[in-house]
Nucleic acid binder design. Structure first.
Length: 475
DNA sequence: CGCATTTGACCAGCGC
DNA sequence: GCGCTGGTCAAATGCG
């Protein structure tokens, strides 16, 4: 008991104690280091965000000027709507747009159509057509002056030719091509997303009885936003809605959510810079982030022809049924729809505020520098174990996605909930209204999809194809 | 009559 | 160069 002669143990104890002390100091040092890195990280993030905000503000100013001119020309299309043009947040996209409307409203039109503005030769005659169009459309109250521009926008394939303004064009082109695709189960022929749409075309999908419908936003003249609606061939209960572009006009809150989503998606894709490399890494990060909880799927396809953020809310048990490019990261949701619906039924609306908040919180994670840092953290094997903060951020994001999915699935109208989910995943830029309410401007659109191949024929023969009859009931 | 949808035609990009 | 495909246009049609 008395340890006199027990010197050896004492020595050992000492040594152990020393080691402990060393370890402790080491740990403290690591903590300090961690702390330091964390603060650096947050500083960088803050700077980035500040810059982003600043840039957006500038863009908005610029756009506001352009729109003023534009509005003066076409007496107030945007009147009445309450919401400021918030989701023009998408800095770069906003810029791209800012240039477009002004161009399109008058002289610029020459350049638009077919995206190869400068396809000389044809321009002259086409301009006549365009002007004719303009008149017609303005008279109908839904200005469509954007059509030319949009043509180029949506028709991504045509974009590359866009041109001359080299400084912006790369960015612009990328933005224009960026798409947000939402896959959701819905028996309804359409989903309500808060915007007004006008159908301008429909095509049959190859090997798919369900046609793909094309819509453009009619809430304001010149709005470049378009969407495609298709129903999945394998599972017709799945509705695939793809959005492209950013609204150039104020929107009601419900629509805002979705709108900011597309903007954010574009920005996000852009932040990954060129699709090929960074884009993939980003997707990887996203997938990893979402995976842990995996009650929703987020896919970012950086592969061509345009970068697409896909939010899969179908909880499809067999993701493989959809052919996906190898470069896509697909995160399947294990939860059967029923479960989600049930879970959501209990909470949907209450969840949304959280979702929105979370979205804002997570937002920084998905953009710019912050994103790449997180990405590294996520991808590196743990030798620097991700800080608990990082980990919890990722977890919370996953939870957010999960919650959003549940809420969405339960929400018969989707809309805001849908947007919230996407936004939360890709980092929506706007503070979202906490209401899930939606405006009912809807568009119905039956759709089809997925294989990507579309036949040219339009025979709408089969009854099923009677897609949309959406008359915009609402709004 | 005005407006939205339908649908055949057209255009441009892409691959072979 | 040609054919295929995605996307858009615009006349025709239908509906309120």
């Amino acid at each position: 008991m008395v340890d006199d002669g027990m010197s050896p143990p004492n020595l050992d104890d000492k040594r152990v104690k020393n080691e402990l002390v060393v370890l402790q100091t080491e740990i403290e040092r690591m903590h300090a280091e961690n702390e330091r890195l964390r603060s650096m990280l947050s500083q960088v993030t803050n700077n980035y965000n500040a810059l982003q905000v600043h840039m957006v503000a500038l863009m908005q100013d610029q756009k506001a000027e352009n729109n003023e001119e534009h509005d003066q020309k076409h007496s107030g299309n945007n009147n009445g709507v309450v919401v400021p043009r918030q989701f023009i947040d998408l800095g770069l996209a906003a810029k791209a747009e800012a240039e477009e409307p002004s161009l399109s409203s008058s002289e610029g039109r020459s350049g638009d159509r077919s995206g190869s503005p400068i396809n000389n030769g044809e321009v002259g005659s086409k301009e006549l057509e365009l002007r004719k169009n303009e008149k017609k459309e303005y008279s109908s109250g839904i200005g469509r002056e954007e059509s030319p521009d949009q043509g180029s926008q949506w028709g991504a394939n045509k974009v590359p030719r866009l041109n001359p303004t080299k400084n912006v064009d790369q960015t612009e082109a990328t933005m224009r091509k960026a798409r947000v695709s939402v896959r959701a189960r819905s028996e309804a022929p359409m989903i309500t997303d808060g915007c007004q749409w006008r159908k301008y075309g429909q095509k049959m999908a190859k090997g798919n009885p369900c046609p793909r419908a094309y819509y453009r936003c009619t809430m304001a003249a010149g709005c470049p936003v378009r969407k495609q609606v298709q129903r999945c061939a394998e599972d017709r209960s799945i509705l695939i809605t793809t959005y492209e572009g950013n609204h150039s006009h104020p929107l009601p809150p419900a629509a805002m959510a979705m709108a900011s989503t597309t903007s954010s998606a574009a920005r996000m894709l852009l932040s990954g810079s060129m699709p090929s490399a960074d884009g993939l890494m980003n997707s990887n990060f996203l997938a990893r982030t979402v995976l842990p909880c995996s009650s929703s799927m987020a896919t970012i396809s950086a592969s061509a022809p345009f970068p697409t953020v896909t939010l899969d809310l179908t909880q499809n048990p067999n993701p493989l049924q959809f052919q996906r490019p190898p470069s896509q990261f697909y995160v399947p949701s294990p939860n059967p729809p029923q479960n989600l619906a049930a879970a959501a039924a209990a909470t949907p609306s209450s969840l949304l505020p959280q979702i929105f908040n979370q979205a804002l919180y997570n937002q920084s994670k998905f953009s710019g520098l912050q994103m790449s840092q997180d990405m590294e953290a996520a991808q590196l094997p743990n030798h620097h174990q991700p800080s608990s903060q990082q980990q919890s951020q990722q977890n919370s994001l996953a939870e957010t996605v999960s919650a959003a999915t549940a809420a969405i699935t339960a929400d018969p109208n989707f809309t805001a909930a849908l947007a919230a989910a996407i936004t939360s995943i890709i980092g929506g830029a706007q503070p979202q209204p906490n209401s899930t309410t939606n405006n009912n401007a809807n568009t119905t659109a039956p759709t089809t999809s997925n294989s990507g191949n579309i036949t040219t024929s339009n025979s709408n023969s089969n009854g099923n194809n009677k897609l949309c009859n959406s008359n915009f009931p609402g709004n």
